[in-house]
């Protein structure tokens, strides 16, 4: 007939064989992902289900695995994450607005802008344990210029007051929360930038054409339109903060704490720390408690992620 038909069919089938083989490999890879997640969840549930009860949720840790609880760690996690959110969200969104909405035209400023942007990318890649060391020096000891945590140069109230503050902060809730803030700040900045970038330019032009200043434009149109995206990114960043252990480990250490923090300078422990403590013990029975703790932690994280997904879907129009 013609030349197309004269090609030997075997060449064709060889090429398609490759295609089918590749699909098989892909399916295998994807199946492996699902299998790993399945095994992970199954192993944690089988180990942890036994200790998962209200006793675990309502009690402090103990030397005996069957009596161990996670209550102070949960409260500690809530406190440091609150400090983290309160400090990281304004800073992060502010930086994102500066970078996205005030791109300078002047050459030197534009170069500076690019440098700040590169700096954020770099900060996002810094290992969290390095932020732990930074927090240790900058917040716990305040560069050792303000005396030592045991002998503060400045205090507000006494450790009995709920508003007790001191400089340097010491290994307390405030230092832990601020360190977490350093870890999640690049994440919040980058996701907020993406949310702002997704706002169509026509809205910006519309606002400017009405005689809005740049800031009025941001406040009146861009930011409201970007809020769902910013919220999604922030929630994901906060779930990272909840699960982050390494920097907190450096700030707080693994300490045996049976009480909940009473002020921002108070010692604390957090859920990932408590889990690490249990998991690193040799006894099998503590591993089971660790698994129970992981189940609680994962439940909280899944709630956060579900919230993020719901917000994303609600505003995805």
């Amino acid at each position: 007939m013609n030349e197309l038909a004269s090609h030997p069919p075997s060449a064709r089938s060889g090429r398609f064989l490759k295609d089918h083989l590749f699909v098989a490999v892909c399916l295998l890879a994807a199946g492996l992902c699902i299998a790993v997640l399945g095994v992970l969840l199954a192993s944690i549930i089988t180990q942890g289900i036994e200790h998962l009860d209200t006793h675990l949720l309502m009690n402090p840790p103990s030397r005996k695995p069957e009596k161990a609880g996670i209550y102070p760690a949960m409260i500690g996690t809530i406190y440091i994450c609150l400090v983290c959110a309160v400090s990281a969200i304004p800073l992060g969104v502010g930086t994102a607005i500066l970078l996205e909405e005030f791109k300078p035209r002047q050459k030197t400023l534009a170069r500076l802008h690019g440098f700040v942007q590169l700096n954020i990318t770099n900060l996002a890649g810094v290992p969290s344990v390095v932020y732990g060391i930074l927090g240790m020096t900058a917040f716990v000891e305040v560069f050792k210029v303000m005396g030592s945590p045991g002998d503060p140069v400045w205090t507000l109230g006494t450790p009995e007051n709920w508003y007790y503050l001191q400089l340097p902060f010491g290994r307390g809730v405030l230092a832990g929360g601020l360190t977490l803030m350093l870890v999640v700040l690049p994440i919040i900045i980058i996701s907020s930038q993406e949310a702002l970038r997704a706002v169509p330019n026509s809205l910006r032009q519309g606002a400017l054409a009405l005689g809005a200043t740049r800031l009025q434009m941001v406040w009146g149109t861009t930011l409201p339109a970007a809020v769902p995206g910013i919220m999604t990114g922030t929630i994901l960043a906060m779930s990272r903060a909840i699960g982050e252990a390494a920097p907190i480990l450096i700030i707080a250490g693994v300490v045996y704490i049976t009480f909940t923090p009473e002020h921002l300078m108070d010692d604390f422990t957090a859920m990932p720390l408590q889990i690490y403590d249990w998991a690193s013990r040799p006894q099998e029975s503590f591993h089971q408690v660790a698994a129970s703790g992981i189940m609680v932690l994962m439940a909280i994280l899944l709630t956060f992620n579900a919230a993020a997904v719901m917000i994303r879907q609600k505003f995805q129009r």
């Binding site: 169509p200 026509s202 809205l203 032009q205 519309g206 606002a207 400017l208 054409a209 009405l210 005689g211 809005a212 200043t213 009146g220 149109t221 409201p224 339109a225």
Partner: peptide, 20 residues
Amino acid sequence: VVELRRHVGMVFQKPNPFPK
């Protein structure tokens, strides 16, 4: 320019109402 744009309104190619 902010003052200028108060006196010179603009309508764009694609309708761009704010999401309000």
